[in-house]
Amino acid sequence: MEPRAGVSKQDVRGQVWDCMEARNVADFPRPVHHRIPNFKAFKMARTIKVTPDAPQKMARTIKVTPDAPQKNARFLVLSSKKTLLVPTPRLRTGLFNKITPPPGATKDILRKCATSQGVRNYSTPVGLDSRVLVDLVVVGSVAVSEQGWRIGKGEGYADLEYAMMVSMGAVSQGTPVVTIVHDCQVVDIPETLLEEHDLTVDYILTPTRVITTGCERPKPTGIVWSKISCEMMGKMPVLRSLRCREERAGKDVTLRDTHRSPPGARAALSSVRSPRALPSLESGSVQREDVPSCAVYVGNLPRDARVSELKRALSARGAAPSRLTWQGPQRRAFLHYRDPAEARQAVSRLQGFCLGANTAKVALARQQGASGPAGGRAGEPHPDP
């Protein structure tokens, strides 16, 4: 199937989805639109196992996506007594889960372990510090070309998972990437549709063929933070941790919408202070009434921190303020207590306080004007004597 002139990724997806439905080659769940298509894959699974060129033969640790078409691949990894890693759904609770079947598991149990329910019941999380090395990556696709260009369903999880593995040192440019598709999913894709974050593949496995793509286009070398939104950061704690690591390493971790207020930001601000009492976020100045002697400054907050996260963390430390002034863009907040004694107690309880991967700067704040006493910079804390 050849794409027409001016084709987009979504056009290619639509052509493949329509073709699979028209030819009735799709398996449950249907319709296949907006999914990684499932299909009868038993013959294909046998091909993976016996083909000498298949990279699975030498691999010991294999990452396989949790999509339905890869169920048989997951089963083969387990039945070959290799280590199976499966990404957590939508990366909301981490990056990997290691599937560990019960001792003496039969083939029937291994097949259950390879299902989405089995992944939930027989898995343990693999942390960022695990130093895991992945020998083979298996991904699903909506469409793929014989040159190795790949198009997913449009949410970008496979690309992001790979980029995160690069960031944590789990894969390199030499780690082979395999995709498992039906023959009708192998189509012509213009290379012009590929972007820097798009993952390419080295092998394509179909029910009838094993295609070695010989793709020489470099794979992603890490997370492209300018493609990541604040909303994604809010949903993926593991992504926030990786961003803090890379920021400490001096990398540019500017997000796609860093300079725009995230959804709900204005509502969050208005919920913690009245508009008249809010400090000026544009100038960074803090009015005298905003930093009384019973206020506590908390700085060095994560760039993606949310006021709700800070409130929960303060409550857990027994330092919940009576009022909170949130200055997320400046990565700081002012905690207002009923009297100076309560503020001092909060500072004591917040020693070593961390939010995300950041250790916060905590100090008593006192009244200051726009320029601050002793030439201090506006909005910075001045510890009380």
Rank of each mutant, 00 (worst) to 15 (best):
D290F: 11
D290I: 14
D290H: 15
V291Y: 03
V291C: 13
P292G: 13
P292W: 14
A295S: 07
A295L: 12
V296I: 11
V296T: 00
V296F: 07
V298Y: 09
V298D: 06
G299S: 02
N300L: 08
N300S: 05
N300T: 04
L301D: 09
L301R: 05
R303K: 05
D304P: 00
D304L: 08
D304Q: 03
A305H: 08
A305I: 05
V307E: 04
S308W: 13
S308F: 11
E309D: 01
E309C: 07
L310K: 07
L310F: 04
L310W: 08
K311C: 00
R312E: 06
A313I: 04
A313H: 01
L314C: 01
A316H: 09
R317N: 03
R317C: 11
G318L: 03
G318E: 06
G318F: 06
A319S: 14
A319P: 02
A320C: 11
P321L: 02
P321W: 03
S322D: 15
S322C: 15
S322E: 15
R323K: 14
R323E: 09
W326Q: 11
Q327D: 11
G328Y: 06
G328E: 12
G328H: 03
Q330G: 10
R331V: 10
R331N: 09
R331E: 00
R331I: 02
R332H: 02
F334Q: 11
F334A: 00
L335D: 00
L335F: 12
Y337K: 00
Y337D: 00
Y337A: 01
R338Y: 10
R338P: 11
P340E: 13
P340H: 08
P340Q: 14
A341N: 10
A341R: 13
A341I: 14
A343N: 04
A343R: 00
A343L: 09
A343M: 03
R344K: 06
Q345A: 11
Q345P: 10
A346P: 04
A346S: 11
A346E: 07
S348N: 12
S348Q: 07
R349S: 06
L350H: 06
L350D: 08
L350N: 05
L350T: 07
G352L: 09
G352Q: 03
L355S: 10
G356R: 15
A357M: 10
N358W: 09
T359F: 10
